[in-house]
């Protein structure tokens, strides 16, 4: 038996919106301590990893580990039934064939229920090692979104360079070339802060198209954390207050 109730259902709705363009069918792993999922995009260059702790739920019960195979596209359609102020409850029996999703609005007394059919997914589960990233950049999520969006209109690829003084996003395309450079900024206004933790400089190139997809999660968190390490995938991380973390991994582009 699994049951989890989230008071702020909007968070779950935002999570589904933030991953639905990247992954299609996903195994959701239920454990007594929380909910997690890991899935790659169809081209296997990006990976989504979500971890939600049971502590963030108003009510959480999972007697055993369970795997719920879900079509994210269909889950997104079901989530459209939820009002932004709804509480969301997820329920599944042992050996379940469907996931019951309940939306409740205590103010308007409206309740919506949907039984989403589960699917069997044969997916690879990768072991992601604990990595000491040599450059970690914490940046306002709205600002990072805007930088990626605007640079994408100029180039398909962005080069991210870090050093102890700044992080630089540079592009080179038919239009020309240029860069956005952000220095370490620990101003009193928290939302303006850019925090650089660089032990070793990194220079890597990435497909901006993916970064734009990841940035859909910027509504989940005020800050985006970029973790870089030469020869390793970039991690774009969004902390979800009191609930968990949504991480995206993206393979760097390398010269052929």
């Amino acid at each position: 038996m699994f049951e989890a109730k989230l008071t702020e259902g909007l968070i779950l709705k935002k999570i589904v919106e933030s991953i639905k363009d990247i992954v299609t069918d996903v195994n959701i792993d239920i454990s007594p301590s929380g909910i997690s999922l890991q899935a790659m995009d169809s081209s296997h260059v990006a990976l989504v990893s979500l971890n939600l702790s049971m502590d963030g739920f108003e009510h959480y019960r999972a007697d055993t580990n369970m795997v719920l195979g879900v079509s994210i596209a269909n889950l997104a359609k079901v989530m459209k039934l939820a009002d932004n102020n709804d509480q969301i409850t997820l329920q599944a029996d042992q050996e379940a064939t469907h996931l019951k999703i309940i939306f409740e609005n205590p103010k308007t007394e409206r309740t919506t229920e949907f039984n989403l059919n589960l699917i069997t997914i044969d997916s690879e589960h990768l072991a992601i090692p604990e990595t000491e990233y040599s450059s970690v950049v914490t940046i306002n999520s709205g600002e990072f979104s805007k930088i990626c969006k605007e640079l994408f209109s100029l180039s398909e690829t962005v080069q991210i360079t870090t050093n102890t003084d700044y992080v630089q996003f540079s592009v080179e395309g038919e239009v020309g070339s240029g860069q956005v450079r952000l220095g370490h900024n620990d101003s009193e206004k928290k939302e303006d802060q850019t925090i650089l933790e660089v032990s070793e400089s990194v220079q890597q190139q990435f497909a901006i198209r993916y970064l734009n997809m990841f940035n859909k999660a910027s509504t989940l968190s005020s800050f985006t954390r970029l973790c870089l390490h030469q020869e390793q995938p970039l991690v774009v991380e969004f902390k979800i207050d009191n609930l968990g973390v949504l991480k995206y991994f993206l393979a760097p582009k390398i010269s052929d």
């Binding site: 790659m40 081209s43 296997h44 260059v45 990006a46 990976l47 690879e124 589960h125 990768l126 072991a127 992601i128 090692p129 690829t157 190139q205 497909a207 390793q232 995938p233 991994f249 393979a251 760097p252 582009k253 390398i254 010269s255 052929d256």
Partner: peptide, 14 residues
């Protein structure tokens, strides 16, 4: 030209 390596190149299968 650029290429991107598969995620399974970086992270091993469990």
């Amino acid at each position: 030209k650029f290429k991107q390596k598969d995620m399974t190149y970086f992270f091993k299968n469990k």
